[in-house]
Amino acid sequence: MTQWHYADRNHQQCGPVDDAELVRLFRNGDIRLDSLVWHSGLPQWQALSDFSEALGLQAAAPASPYMPPASEVLGEEAVVNGGEVVYAGFWKRVAAYIIDGFIAGIVGGMIGGVIGAMMGVASMGDPSGGKFLAVQLLSNLVGMVIGVAYFAGMHASSAMATLGKMAVGIKVVRSDGQKISFLRGVGRYFGLIVSSLTLCIGFAMAGFTERKRALHDMMCDTLVVDKWAFTSHPEWQRKELGAVTITILVLGGLLLVVGVLAIMAAVVFAARASH
């Protein structure tokens, strides 16, 4: 097997790696076609593009750096079993939830503005508050429908992942690697509520169960895995967190700290104002 050495973006020599790892580095954008590579059979370092056809790099062309990584589009008949499966750990899932929560917050904020205006109109001339309660119930129903449509729809799509999961490179599948149905996606969405009612222990289970399954995964026979799991290229799976996951976790942690400090400051201010 050929053992390659390559120059990274800082022009530092790295390696040795085999053909599959070299292709994976190219697929993830760590090296480019103009990156220099070498192995013992070459008289000197050459551009990776010289070996593009031999390594099949055209089929492994990296996605645009401005686009989040997406799961490979597969039909049910294209599922490949027997290779290594890298399960998505707790922290990758947390990062995905942070992104999805941000997206849901934007959509919810826009809808909340419309609902708020409706509440203002509904409460006028209605001392009993009946219309206000009706609009509030409508708001809750709309929020639930949006959540079901987003999570169930995206998980049952060809991407098999929400935007948050796409960004960190993971997807949701059945325990045998097949794409889940929309109805199973709906059940999984409501399973999230059950995981929440256990003081979030249901979510934490993804950190220590055998196949990194949360409670709602066990309830719905689903797995959260690397986007290349159950494909013809299991060697492209990544066990490390990755730059996107780490960045999102750091930003989420900073926002949490800022939020806690803001709440503490508000409590202190209110206490002083009351004296």
Rank of each mutant, 00 (worst) to 15 (best):
L223T: 00
V148R: 10
A273Y: 09
F230I: 11
L33F: 11
T209N: 11
I31C: 07
V186M: 13
A167G: 01
G101M: 13
V135R: 05
T198G: 00
E21L: 06
A167C: 04
R93C: 13
G56L: 09
S40C: 12
P62V: 00
F269H: 11
E72Q: 14
L22G: 10
Q58P: 02
A63Y: 08
G112W: 04
K239F: 04
L57I: 03
A61Q: 07
A59V: 00
A204L: 15
A271G: 15
E76N: 15
C220E: 08
G191M: 13
F51R: 01
I193D: 04
G252E: 07
V168E: 09
H275D: 01
H216T: 04
V148D: 00
L254S: 07
I170Y: 08
L254N: 00
S64H: 05
V94P: 01
D18A: 05
F151W: 07
G29P: 08
L57E: 06
R188C: 08
I246M: 12
F230S: 11
A122S: 15
F182S: 01
A229Y: 05
V85E: 06
A54L: 14
G202C: 09
Q136G: 14
K165Q: 10
A134D: 11
G29N: 08
Q3D: 13
L25G: 03
L57H: 05
S123E: 15
G112K: 02
Q237K: 06
I111A: 15
L36Y: 09
A122P: 10
G207K: 05
G202E: 02
V37F: 02
W228L: 03
A262W: 00
G105A: 13
D126L: 12
Y66H: 14
Y66C: 10
G120C: 14
Q58K: 11
I201Y: 08
S40T: 06
A63L: 09
V121E: 12
H216N: 10
M160I: 04
R32K: 08
D50W: 03
G89V: 09
V107S: 09
E77T: 14
V267D: 06
M219Y: 02
V260G: 07
A59F: 00
H275W: 06
V168W: 02
V37L: 09
G116C: 14
L141I: 15
L138I: 12
G153D: 03
M124K: 10
G153C: 04
E72T: 12
L42Q: 12
T222A: 10
G75I: 06
I103W: 06
G169Q: 05
A70C: 00
L55H: 02
